[in-house]
């Protein structure tokens, strides 16, 4: 008999397709696991247009099939995914990989901030820890990231935007 804890454990091994150092559990998109007559995994996608979403569903399905389970995967969009759900462990893994984790409480409000390039908050460089950093572009290599650079070590880096 499979337990919920076992399923969570297997899911913790499923990497995010775009940022493979963190798992789908670290990312906070697995919202619920229930084990009854069948195993149901409830997933809340990140950005509406994120191309990784369908790959993630496929990877979860494949990981559980390797354990002999044919899961039912449900998509739930409410409440909407937020970076607040990224685990502390996930944040450490991001930093170690060279991606600055989100600075909580800085999600966009839609309030226009004049001349906001450079941002109105500080992001520590994931390489050298300096806070002498600046935003290069609010949109980066994936929908969830912005492009920043460090003025101390002169390296560019990705910042996982607060969402």
């Amino acid at each position: 008999m499979v337990t919920e804890a076992q399923v969570w454990g297997w899911l913790a091994e499923v990497p995010d397709p775009e940022i493979p150092v963190i798992s789908v559990v670290d990312l906070g998109i697995v919202r619920e696991v229930s084990v009854g007559e069948e195993v149901t995994v409830t997933v809340t996608p990140t950005y509406s247009g994120c191309p990784a979403t369908s790959v993630i569903t496929f990877e979860i399905d494949a990981a559980l099939r390797r354990q002999g389970i044919t899961p039912r995967i449900e998509t739930r969009i409410a409440p909407p995914w937020t970076t607040d759900w990224i685990t502390a462990e996930g944040r450490d893994k991001l930093r170690a990989y060279g991606i600055a984790p989100p600075v909580d409480g800085t999600a966009p409000t839609g309030r226009r901030v004049a001349r906001m390039v450079g941002g109105n908050f500080t992001v520590a460089c994931p390489r050298c820890g300096s806070t002498e950093t600046e935003e290069v572009s609010r949109f980066g290599s994936t929908p969830c990231k912005a492009a920043w650079r460090c003025k101390s070590c002169a390296e560019p880096f990705d910042y996982f935007k607060c969402h």
């Binding site: 937020t82 999600a107 226009r112 004049a114």
Partner: peptide, 25 residues
Amino acid sequence: VAEIAAKAEREVAYHFERSSDLVIR
């Protein structure tokens, strides 16, 4: 409708911050 709007709103807040910032600049 409310669910879709709640999800999209966060993304569009980003869109508007960017587009208004660039229109000003």
